[in-house]
Write a protein that binds this DNA or RNA. Sequence first.
DNA 1: ATCTCTGCGATTGTCTACAATCTACAGACG
DNA 2: CGTCTGTAGATTGTAGACAATCGCAGAGAT
Lengths: 251, 251
Amino acid sequence: MDGRHSLAGYRNCDNSGHLNRHMKPNLPQIKNVSIREQTLVTLREAILTGELKPGHSLIEMDLSRQLGVSRAPIREALRILNTEGLIETIPYHGTTVRRLTRRDIEEIYSMRSLLETFAVEQVIRARNPDHLQRLRDTVEDMIVAGRDNSINTVNILDRDFHDALIEMSGHSLLLSMWQTVAMKARQVMALVNRRNTDLTQIARNHLPLLDAMEGGDIPGAIELLQAHIASAGDLVAEDWQRDSAAVGDGS
Amino acid sequence: MDGRHSLAGYRNCDNSGHLNRHMKPNLPQIKNVSIREQTLVTLREAILTGELKPGHSLIEMDLSRQLGVSRAPIREALRILNTEGLIETIPYHGTTVRRLTRRDIEEIYSMRSLLETFAVEQVIRARNPDHLQRLRDTVEDMIVAGRDNSINTVNILDRDFHDALIEMSGHSLLLSMWQTVAMKARQVMALVNRRNTDLTQIARNHLPLLDAMEGGDIPGAIELLQAHIASAGDLVAEDWQRDSAAVGDGS
DNA sequence: ATCTCTGCGATTGTCTACAATCTACAGACG
DNA sequence: CGTCTGTAGATTGTAGACAATCGCAGAGAT
């Protein structure tokens, strides 16, 4: 119901089902998305992109005016964001974007590592060539994007890669937890001012992992994956220390 | 905010802070719990104990009348339960307790295994004697309760044991995910008609794990833990197959 | 007999107004 | 001068009414 159970997003416009008689489809599929849902997506995205920084206070009445809707659906969206751990509410006092500590970042990356390790093992055991091919395609696109220095594309493809890994495990509970963690990781990455790093190198880092997976080498793949994630985490944690993106101004 | 961030529950009545001058504390700490919170706890507990079975429909208006409150707080509670994965809502149609498949059960137990394995490793590395002592005490109580054949107490202590394990890892994100999984596991256990098993044996099963932990034997402890959880999971899955507690009547 | 359409009832979605609670500050009181 | 008390403003909590939507049954057409 909360609209993020399909990782890849909005690609299911397939209206393939039962268009009876007259064959004139391809109308853009009318969507009736509740205000709650729109509010939820809007706020979540704002938090994840760092537009709404930790500490920023979210006042229902203000949001109500800004979005041009009543408070009821906004409140429900806030309850969801609260359950997801992105915001905090103090009764009768206010709601703020959850502040992040260095400890939080460590936890996010260690959890990411745990979940992905599990997924990789499942995927290797499944030995599905299509899966590995899909991953390889993604990495190749990533390398190309890295060569073009288009950092945004690289990031998206990197997310695609890791999302795909989890999806391929076929473990829906794992997927659900992954989404929570990946969300937080996204927020963290948006908050740190990343140093310029070699984009092609980031992309190429995925290749050894793929090789190990294709070779069915579970311990090797796990080793590489954990190193991959740990180095990413360390890099972020370092930058976190450097610029204290932790503090938001409260409004 | 959702009142379950302290596993052990309501033990923080410490009003220790700054009672200036006159020393007469020990008043029972007045609680102002929002209706949303009360609704949330009530419904969640009903689902987790199996009182509200999968498929049972939750109609906001009915709940409103039964609980004697308006729909607004009920809706917010339902959004939270939905995010937690306990219920499902179809827009303009209805809300029901989420149905469980055998696959769900497998996923719940495999995730439980993954999270606990991680926690055990952390706890062993920390080498905190107090931690191990606390676990041992719990197991001993469990054995006593098993001898008295008080199944309820054994269950509670078993939960305490595993909750404590997670808590001791000091990993709050892990704790939060654990709570979600443990919740679902609780629901599953409430739904199957468990065969009578030897309660003392269940309790004693924890002892080898403790020994391995005290010996700092990480691989051994992991092995034992995973076997412990897997056997519990298999037992439940078996019973699930036997009586199809999966189906609820819809109201 | 089968299909299509329309209206009805049930349920959720949204809005507005009002109540309860918290913090901070100003003023009364010793 | 310090302490308590009360009041104002801001914010969330709750209530009740109304709107939108969906599924289904039954009337009507083919």
